[in-house]
Structure formats: C-alpha cells, structure tokens
Design a protein around this nucleic acid. Structure first.
Lengths: 337, 337
DNA sequence: TCGTAACAATGAAACGATTCAAAGATTCGC
DNA sequence: GCGAATCTTTGAATCGTTTCATTGTTACGA
C-alpha cells in the first residue's frame, strides 16, 4: 500500500505496452475488446488512478480555470462561483477557487499560484486597480476575463451588471406604484455600485415631472447603518417623510424596515414603500417581504466561462464586454399604497 | 509570446546549467551571489514561472489539500474553509475547494478529481454515509480527516463540535437568567444536530428542579418555519407561553422573534427570552440583538489541517477525534426578565 | 608550492502520462 | 494462397522540474 500504481504497473500487470493502456484510457475505440477488458481489470485490481501532473506536463496545459473573487461569503459571488463551476464542468474543466478577501496581497498570491498551475485562463474580480498585474498576465498569454467590472475592451473581455439600469428599475417601480417623494439610501457614495445605482434612480426621477429624490448617505451597507438612517427618518414629521425608499442593498433596506416597523409609527407599504438591491435570501423572509433587484449571477458566471473559452480557442484576441441587466422582484414591501 | 519559458531557457539565457537554476529557486544558499543575480535577471527577463505539474511529478505528490464541504454558501462552512486555507498557507500548502451541495454524485466527482491531483490529503464533510468510499481512500493511502462528523477512531481522524454541549449551554443560560418554562424549537428531529442540541437542553432542564422543557417541532430550519412556530405561540394565552425559547438555529430564532415583536403582544426579553444557535451575522443586527451559541469554526478548520498534517507526516496511522465545545454569546434577547 | 577542505556548478536520470511512427496481426478479395 | 488494406499493438521520445553523484574552483594552512 506504499505507492500508487502507475500506467507502467498496469501495463505489466495486463501484459501490454504502456501505450495500449493509455489508449484504453483516451481512445477506447482503438483497442480490441479483449485487450481492453484485460487492461480495465488490471486498473481495477491495482486501484490505478491517473496522475494528473504527468498528464498536464505532457499536454502543456491544465484542464482547470482559475477564479478569484473578492469574498466567497458574499452570496453574490457564491452564486457566480457555482454557475461558473457548472459551466466549466460542462466543458470538462474544473475551477480552482481563490478568495482574495479584498486583499491585494492574497490576490497576488492566487495569481501566482494559478500561473504555476498553468490554468487555461483566469476569471477575476479584481481588488482595486490592478491594471499592471493584469497587463503582465496578458503578455504572458494567460487569457483573462474580468468579472463584475468593466474593462478596456481592447485589452480584456469582461462580464458585468448594469447598476445604473438597476437603479433606474428600482426608482421606476416606486414611481409606477404612485410614489413621488423618493429617497435613496446608500454609502459611502464613492463605491462605484452605489454611485451607479443612485445615478440610475436619478434618471428615473427626472423623467417623472413632480417627482423628487432625496439622497440619504449611510455609513456603510449594513443592517445597522440602515437602522440608523431609519431612526433618523422616524424622528421626522409625517409630512417630511419620503413615500418611497430605495436602498442600495438589501441589508440597508432590512435595517430601515426594522426601524420603521419596530416603532409602529409607519406602515410598510401603506405609508412608505421600500425596495432593496441584491435579492438576498433574507429578503423573502423579512417581516414585510422585501422587493428587490435581482442580479443575474448565474448568467454572469456562465458567460464568464464562455468568454474565457472563446479566448482560449481563438488565438487572435478579440475581446467582448458583456453587460447584463438586472431584474425587478416585486414583493409586499412595495405593494400599492 | 507563444510558449512560456522553461527552466532550460533560463539556464541558456544565463549561461548556467539547469541544475543551477533549480538551486537558485530551491536552495539559494548553495549558489554564489554572482550566479544567483544572473539567474534571477534571466528569470525576470524571460518572465519565467515554475511549472507546478513538472514539480509535482518529480516530487510524487502535490502541495495541495482537498476540502469538500456540503455547502459553501453556509456561513458555518465558509468560515471553516477560510480558517483551513489560512492554516494550510502557513505550512505552504494550498486548498482545493469542492462544494458537494449535499449531492453524493458531486462529492464522488471531487474525490476522483482530487485523487488525480494527488492531493496530500482530504478534508471532507461527507454526504450521508460514505463509509465504503472513504475506506477505499484509506486503502489507497490518501490521508483523510472528517469534518463536522464523528468517525470511527480506529479508521479516521475527525473534528467536530459538541452539539449536546451547545444545547446544554443554551438551556443552562436560560435557566440561569431565571426562566423555568422552556421551549425547544427545531426540526426535523432526525437531523443529528437538532437531536443532539435538544438532548443537551433536556439534560440541563433535568438538573434544575421545577424546570420544564416543551418541544416544538418545526418544519425545517428557516426563518419562515420559525415564524409559523412563533405565530402558533402568539395564539396561546399569556400563561401557557414559555418564558424562555431555545431555537436550534438562528434563522428559526429570527423567525420566532419576528412573530413575537410584530404583534407587540410580548416583549423580548421581558416576557420571553430567546436564544438561537450558530451566531450568524444577522444575529447581532436583529431587532432585538439575538443571543446565540457560537461554533468555533476557525478552530475546526485549523485543527482539521493540523490533524491532516499529522497523518501525512507519520506513516503509522494513529487517529484522533477532536471535539470542540461551542461558546455562549449573550446579547439583549436573553437579558434579565 | 602542495594538499586538502569547502564551496559551486554541472548534467544525466527520474517522475508518469501521451504521442506517433513503425511493426505486427488480421481480414478480405481475387 | 497472395497482396493489399485495415486494424492493433508497440515502445521510444517528450514534457519541465528536482536530485545527486561528479567534476571543477577557490582558499588556506603547512
């Protein structure tokens, strides 16, 4: 039970040449029925398992794809990862997953590791600005697709979600259900996603004569941050209250919902309609089920793999930037007033 | 930019032998300063990156560890994974992550894949009963550590958390704060974790003369399941209500909290104390911050890696089963009545 | 100046799978 | 029964790294 059997051991055991064993594994049709059976028997008896390192070495490349995300704990990425894995499996590849945790150092480690593994390509949701590193990868000939980030289309392919469109969708929905005095909750505003969602919301409001949009900057995107914004709102007089609130993510929205329902001063959706963003699992099971904007995470993951395949296949590099439009999910929190 | 440079190219470029380049990479002290500089320069100029496949092939084993979890989306596992990655990184290994999604087929695929990769060993949180498969691994000489599952100690090492102790801790805490009519919420009761936590709670209650424990079986472990149990409780008369509720996980507890606070019939913790299990992120930011039982996930992940190292190092296989005791986290929901 | 120890550098062999040209076996038509 | 065509099998060469016995170089004390 010391060493794992090699193809040579199998060959000896079955009294055939190593090439034949390899053929049984890779081109079964080239081998006669009798020989095949003998070889398979030997494989079984010795408990032979292919050594992928040797395979790769010979092939010159692996059958794996590297995927580096900012945070595996984030349901957005979890879902993207799963979709990417499934898509990769379909074309016979496996995904090596790396979690950078928003840390440039860890990200760099994974990039190095994946290069040593000779991955077919890299899907990456990069930390901050890593143009130089990525340029290096490009020169080294490692096909790379950016995830959840737009890229210079002359250099990289990318998949992303249109946050401006998402913001528009949310605000438009509030307007469609009769609300006119809207508020946007989110922050810090220098996060791109926050800025884009706000911009989309503003666009929708400008299209609607008489509608207004108040911007409430939150300290972060957490439930607690949402609750303090909510508490501030509760202090206000009834007339100064917005009648529709769009939060830049669901956590904020849940926090706002807590403040408003806890005090029983205002009812959702009768007094205030509330919509979040991301459609996390908790949105359905909130006290008042929360309307939200769902991001097409499965499509993101799948498409990322597809774009990568395109790059791997064709040697002349034409890149594509695919942008998905998010989807409105209506629940009770934005019911008719 | 066609092929990546090999160690041979570097050797030529720097006018040294391949062995020297290898030494620069692996045993820098064996090489003179002058030569080292020349080689490093060549490496830089050619953009050389080690080919891990060749390295592994020569070494006979990889520097990776396989980790198969039931669900990466589950915060419990996410945390275990992160800890395992960090612990592995410390000893120079990387973790290959597989998500079986409670599916035996996917699990089998990952086991095969990891075997082909010649991982140093396997950490696995197995789907159902996979004794045969694992026995096979053992015969093949792949060191394996079971995660979150007790194992026959003559066969495998394992790391787990003592759910009975956790249940005891939760119930004991409710009793300590003066509650006597307790209720346990959880289900289905054939889930081992649920059964163990209940058993621990029963033990605590039996130790306390005059205390009672009512078992409320829920349909699953979700917020919605918790809410329906909560709604049922609200229907009861004030006197028939428990004064302390222990939920088998935080989602259930949040659901129960929703029902109780929404109707404003009962106050938490004044009328009813509430404690959950798992200490998920949402526990802190609940309307009433939720007391909970925290599982030592970091310790689990770290220890799993350590046990695996032990097995890898020593060839004579002595296994250990490490059981961790969870920790009580007190928040507002179990404040003094 | 010589001998020896310490240090550097060399390059062939090995890891295990795949490839492919060549050899060997079989089939078939005539 | 023979030659050609087809089907099987063979085994050496290859991928890129590490290892290690060997050779070459330098330094230093006698």
């Amino acid at each position: 039970m010391n060493r794992t059997a090699s193809i040579k051991d199998v060959a000896t055991h079955a009294s055939v040449a190593v090439g034949t064993v390899s053929n049984v594994l890779n081109y079964p049709d080239r081998v006669s029925q009798r020989t095949k059976e003998r070889v398979l028997k030997a494989i079984d008896e010795l408990g032979f398992v292919r050594n992928d390192a040797a395979r790769q070495l010979r092939a010159g490349h692996s059958r794996t794809v590297g995927l580096i995300v900012l945070d595996v704990g984030n349901p957005f990425f979890t879902s993207v990862v799963r979709a990417a894995e499934d898509a990769a499996a379909l074309q016979g590849s496996a995904v090596l997953l790396g979690d950078s945790g928003h840390d440039a150092g860890r990200e760099a480690n994974y990039i190095d590791l994946f290069q040593e593994q000779r991955v077919q390509g890299l899907l990456i949701s990069p930390v901050g600005d890593v143009t130089e590193r990525l340029d290096l990868l490009r020169e080294r000939g490692v096909p790379t697709v950016l995830v959840d980030r737009l890229a210079d289309e002359s250099k990289f392919s990318s998949v992303a979600v249109d946050d401006d469109a998402g913001g528009y969708l949310a605000a438009r929905h509030l307007l469609d259900t009769g609300r006119r005095r809207l508020a946007f909750v989110g922050g810090p505003t220098d996060i791109r996603q926050v800025a884009d969602r706000l911009q989309g919301a503003q666009r929708a409001v400008q299209e609607e004569p008489g509608a207004t949009l108040e911007v409430l900057t939150s300290e972060g995107m957490t439930v607690l941050a949402g609750r303090s914004v909510g508490n501030m709102l509760v202090q206000r007089g009834r007339d100064e209250l917005p009648d529709g609130i769009f939060c830049a993510n669901d956590l904020l929205a849940l926090g706002v919902m807590q403040s408003l329902t806890m005090t029983h001063t205002f009812r959702i959706p009768e007094d205030v309609a509330l919509i979040g963003y991301d459609d996390i699992d908790f949105a359905v099971s909130a006290v008042v089920p929360l309307s939200s904007i769902r991001q097409p995470t499965e499509a993101l993951g799948r498409t990322a793999i597809e774009l990568l395949s395109e790059e791997v296949e064709s040697q002349n590099p034409t890149h594509r930037a695919v942008v998905f439009t998010p989807e409105l999910v209506v629940r009770q929190s934005t019911g008719k007033a």
